[in-house]
Design a protein around this nucleic acid. Structure first.
Length: 512
RNA sequence: GGGCCGGUAGCUCAGUCGGUAGAGCAUUUGACUUUUAAUCAAAGGGUCGCGGGUUCGAGUCCCGCCCGGCUCACCA
């Protein structure tokens, strides 16, 4: 036997032990991969409904329950034993003693491994130490675990394993399950609020022949029958506004965007965006709507409008508002002389502090450098320069600026909104300006979308539109510092060979 | 892509100056009919991420690579 073969057979030892248990379970007349099990209560229901009951109350009125769960801990003591079953992130103790179950059932209990899924029935009681428990009067087997569970005390800490094997993360770390429950509540809250305001949920193409609606590099794919390249969308914006032209008036979409760019604690190549468009309003109307949406979402998701995020508190019932120029002045830290309101309007001053091409780009770059990381408490920043906003409407008083705002919290951009540009002639000029930037080497500049311009030629009502990054909002409302902690399966490099199929094949062939 | 940090038993982690690879949980065997990170007694389990190099000798030092985390740049 080579060293390699020896180590392989040793690695298989745990797996082989558990695989052998399957035959023993079946010898007792149970199925190792079970059948339907009609429980009377979930574990969270029992904890919620019966935690207030005292030991005397439980002894007085017998409460019969039939429950299921995965074995999280087991403590065997000869002719009796305790175990904790885990279901939906919560644990309930069960007590099994030889006298109270059949011989066959006790034999089954003795075969159980951590991680097995079983069903038990019996009555509720409190142990000597007061823990609510099920006094088991019968049990059955529902599913076998062949691999060993993560450590019961520390859970699964290896972040790589947690992301690659999210199922294990969910089994071992109950708070992870809660993160994704809160995320689901965020999305359903937003849906409910938008629908109560008359918004219609729509689905627009994920695969687009022309990508647009944002500045980003796309993923490219190919359709064989049509023999055309398609882009995974970087934003749904231009399609949603076509629907506004078509008269839908209030539309929204919650779905994935794909951007072929860096990965970080705040960026995943696919991410979820809410975009909504409301005809006959403008960015100021959306500002008020955003404030309400965010406050209600925070309450629905967490129970309160203010949440702890790391060391700070984010209060979504008190959202500050600054213009981008006010923010530069407010958060200026670069030297002792704070810029004046005249400075931030002065192209020469802007050029002194930024090497970007135009005053607008310079202003945005200065803002991002001096202010963005200080926008911890929820803050609305408004009045953006036209150069960086090719789809927004000009401010009537100052055409170098557009009627646009962004929402920041914890130093992250979580929303972006503007009065939509609905003048086809101006939109054509903006696209041409973007084409110029593209020729100068900006490969994230917008492409000309003639069908979109044609749609505007039919007349789009004055409209406000907004996008909210769902993943980032979920980070804020679940107190997670990385976007990967709010995405069930974040993108990672594929792992190497796993080898489980070979090990299972070896077991089937009798260990060889 | 740059910088910093990490990868040791199924899991959580130690490993000193380069000198026989360790603990807890999990596993196996035995004891135990109210335990709860159960306890007690014993046992088994290692490609120290991968590949080179230096050395009498490498988990440890050097080089390259793989995977991950944080961070900077870019972006939402």
């Amino acid at each position: 036997m080579s060293l390699r073969e020896i180590s392989l057979s040793i690695e298989n030892e745990l797996l082989a032990q558990r695989y052998a248990r399957i035959a023993e379970v079946e010898k007792l007349g149970y199925r190792s991969y079970g059948q339907r099990f009609d429980f009377t209560h979930t574990i969270p229901q029992i904890l919620k409904d019966f935690s207030p009951r005292t030991a005397e109350e439980l002894a007085g009125t017998r409460v019969e329950v039939k429950i299921t769960g995965r074995i999280f801990t087991i403590r065997r003591m000869g002719k009796a034993g305790f175990a904790h079953l885990m279901q939906l992130g919560e644990k309930l103790q069960i007590y099994i003693k030889k006298d109270a179950v059949t011989e066959r059932e006790f034999a089954l209990y003795q075969l159980l491994d951590l991680g097995d899924i079983i069903g038990v029935w019996g009555y509720l009681f409190r142990t000597r130490t007061g823990e609510l428990s099920v006094h088991v009067e019968g049990l059955t087997f529902l599913s076998k675990t062949l691999l060993s569970m993560p450590e019961k005390f520390h859970g699964l800490e290896d972040v790589e394993l947690r992301y690659r094997q999210r199922y294990l993360d969910l089994i071992a770390n109950p708070d992870v399950m809660n993160v994704f429950r809160v995320r689901a509540r965020i999305i359903s809250s937003l849906r409910r609020q938008l629908e109560s305001r008359g918004f219609v949920e729509v689905e627009t193409p994920m695969m687009q022949p022309l990508y647009g609606g944002a500045a980003a590099r796309p993923f490219v794919t190919h359709h064989n029958t049509l023999d055309i390249d398609l882009y995974l969308r970087i934003a749904p914006e231009l399609y949603l506004k076509r629907l506004i032209v078509g008269g839908l008036e209030r539309v929204y979409e919650i779905n994935r965007n794909f951007r072929n760019e860096g990965i970080s604690t705040q960026h995943n190549p696919e991410f979820t965006m809410l975009e909504f468009y409301q005809a006959y309003t403008d960015y100021l109307g959306l500002m008020d709507l955003s404030v309400e949406l965010l406050r209600e979402t925070a309450i629905d998701a967490t129970g309160a409008p203010a949440v702890k995020y790391g060391e700070v508190t984010l209060d979504f019932s008190r959202i500050r508002r600054f213009t981008i120029r006010e923010a530069v002045i407010e958060f200026w830290k670069e030297d002792l002389t704070r810029p004046s309101t005249d400075n931030v309007r002065d192209p020469e001053w802007l050029a002194r502090y930024s090497h970007r091409h135009t005053p607008g780009e310079q202003l945005v770059e200065i803002f991002e450098r001096v202010a963005e990381s200080h926008l911890i408490e929820p803050t609305i920043i408004h009045e953006y320069p036209v150069e960086t906003s090719p789809l927004s409407k000009n401010n009537p008083a100052d055409p170098a600026f557009v009627d646009r705002f962004e929402i920041y919290a914890a130093g992250m951009e979580i929303g972006n909104a503007y009065t939509e540009l609905n003048d086809p002639q101006e939109q054509r000029r903006r696209f041409e300006m973007q084409l110029g930037m593209r020729e100068r080497g900006d490969d994230e500049a917008h492409q000309m979308d003639e069908d979109y311009v044609r749609a505007l030629c039919y007349g789009m009502p004055p409209t406000g539109g907004e996008g909210i990054g769902i993943d980032r909002l979920a980070m804020l409302l679940t107190n997670r510092q990385s976007i990967r902690d709010v995405i069930l399966f974040p993108l990672l490099r594929p792992e190497g060979p796993i080898g489980i199929a070979g090990e299972l094949r070896a077991l089937e062939n009798g260990g060889k």
